[in-house]
């Protein structure tokens, strides 16, 4: 008996990192998973995206946790690809109740960029993080409304969705702007969808032990951050969270324990935002 028995969750960026962890956690609580991932590199982003093999590995891990999973390769920047995967998943499982957006990227470069590179970084970050979040929500909402059982949408924002930091390159600015933008999307959808008992919240992780935070360029960038690295340290004595810490907050938010929780910006940030 799990808290999410019989429910179906859609998760974007599911092949690895935080969202793989969410898929496993939700499956352990009884949910089935509809998952998408781009499974291809994005040129403006400096670290590799997940692979098809990693998507398949996630499917195996979800099954081992007791869930069923339909995994599809799709790019969140393309609404039609998202919609096709969503529709196919709802057709397959008969419903969707939980929506976890979004797949995210954080392009940084530890060097001078040309204006073309600046613009590419900005567009890639905003395209994946903000357009992608909107596309996932927009593909899901008709199904949530048609199901007439309420629902729960959780957008993954960031500490950079509540505070202004991340450097002054296209990627860092696009990251902070898109993660702030997700909060506006969440607040407005929370009001618009409340009469249908659909709850909408954001989570705001500090640095998590995944490829986005742990790659050589990001490490160099943080070590050379203008105000010095201490400014970017967590108040609680922990350098980096594990994906499971974010999954625990999400498992609460999407369960019936959080049935009256909506419109919340939920930091899982070791006190980072409160200090800044």
């Amino acid at each position: 008996m799990g808290k999410l028995d019989g429910k179906v969750a859609f998760i974007s960026g599911v092949a690895r990192g935080q969202r793989r962890s969410h898929a496993i956690r939700l499956a352990r609580e009884g949910a089935d998973i509809i998952g998408i991932d781009i499974c291809a590199d994005i040129p403006a982003n400096h670290y590799p995206m997940a692979s098809r093999e990693e998507l398949d590995e996630t499917i195996g891990l979800v099954e081992r946790a007791g869930g069923k999973m339909l995994g599809t390769v799709a790019d969140v920047r393309d609404f039609q690809q998202v919609k096709s995967a969503m529709d196919a998943g709802v057709e397959h499982f008969g419903r969707v109740d939980i929506v976890l957006a979004n797949a995210g990227i954080a392009p940084v470069a530890f060097r001078e960029l040309s204006i073309e590179e600046e613009l590419q970084q900005w567009r890639a970050a905003v395209g994946v993080n903000l357009d992608g979040a909107y596309h996932v929500a927009w593909a899901a909402i008709p199904h949530l409304l048609a199901g007439n059982r309420g629902g729960s949408i959780v957008f993954t924002s960031s500490t950079a969705g509540l505070r202004g930091f991340g450097g002054a390159q296209g990627g860092g600015l696009g990251y902070a702007a898109s993660k702030h933008g997700v909060v506006g999307l969440m607040r407005t959808l929370a009001n618009a969808l409340a009469p249908a008992n659909i709850r909408v919240n954001t989570v705001h992780p500090t640095a998590v032990n995944t490829m986005m935070a742990v790659n050589p360029t990001m490490t160099a960038f943080i070590e050379n951050y203008p105000d010095g690295a201490p400014h970017l340290q967590n108040p609680l004595p922990v350098a980096m969270l594990e994906p499971e810490d974010i999954s625990a907050a999400i498992a609460y938010l999407v369960s019936d324990e959080g049935r009256y929780v909506t419109g919340v910006t939920f930091p899982v940030d070791a006190g980072f935002c409160n200090k800044l």
């Binding site: 009001n191 967590n234 625990a248 498992a251 009256y260 929780v261 909506t262 940030d269 070791a270 006190g271």
Partner: peptide, 24 residues
Amino acid sequence: FLVSDESRYVTGLEFKVDAGVTIR
């Protein structure tokens, strides 16, 4: 949730259980 170790890295949170009364 806040007492449990599931929230071991959650601090400084204003945790609303408010059915959206503060957003509308």
